[in-house]
Design a protein around this nucleic acid. Structure first.
Lengths: 67, 67
DNA sequence: TTTGAAATGGGCAAATTTGCCTATATTTTT
DNA sequence: AAAAATATAGGCAAATTTGCCCATTTCAAA
C-alpha cells in the first residue's frame, strides 16, 4: 500500500511535504505510511486520496504479492 | 464503509460472529467497524476482505454521499 | 562537489484502537 | 409469544497511531 501511495503521489508530482500540508498531517506521518511503518486508518487513506484527487480504490490497486 | 461491509457480509451470508472468528477479531470489533464507531486500520480491512473472499477495493465501492 | 530540497528516523505525550469480558437490545425462528 | 441467534453497548488496560519536535540521510540540481 505504501509503495502504491508513493507511486501515485509521484505521478501527481506532489512531495510528501505538499501532501502533508494538503491533508493537514505531519510529514513524518506520510513518510511512515509510505514506508509501511504504521497501519494507518481508513479515514487517513480517504483524506489522502481526496487531496491527491484519486479514488480510494486506486490505492488498493496492486498485486497482493508486493510489499 | 461500515455499511458497505455490512452489506457485503450479508450477501455472503456470514454473521458478525463468524466473520470475527475467521479474522480472529472480536465480535464487538466487527460491530464497531460496521457502525463506524472506529476508524479501523488498513490491515484490518485487508484481513476482512480476505476472509470474506472479496477484493479490498470492493469495500470502497460506494458513493461518497452515503453513510 | 556543494547546495538545497525531499525523505527518513526517533523520542515522547496525547489520542485512538483493540482485545477481553459481560450485559442488553434487536432480529429471526419456532 | 417464547426461545434462540445476532447485533449493539460499555468499561478498562494494553497496544498502536498521531502530532509535534528536531536531527540526519538521501536525492536532485546547480
Amino acid at each position: 500500500m505504501g509503495l502504491r501511495l508513493k507511486n501515485l503521489r509521484k505521478q501527481k508530482a506532489v512531495s510528501q511535504e505538499q501532501l502533508a500540508n494538503l491533508c493537514d498531517f505531519e510529514i513524518s506521518q506520510i513518510s511512515r505510511i509510505e514506508r509501511g511503518i504504521i497501519n494507518t486508518s481508513i479515514s487517513s487513506i480517504f483524506t489522502i486520496a481526496e487531496k491527491l484527487e484519486i479514488s480510494p480504490k486506486e490505492l488498493f490497486d496492486f498485486e497482493e504479492i508486493q510489499e
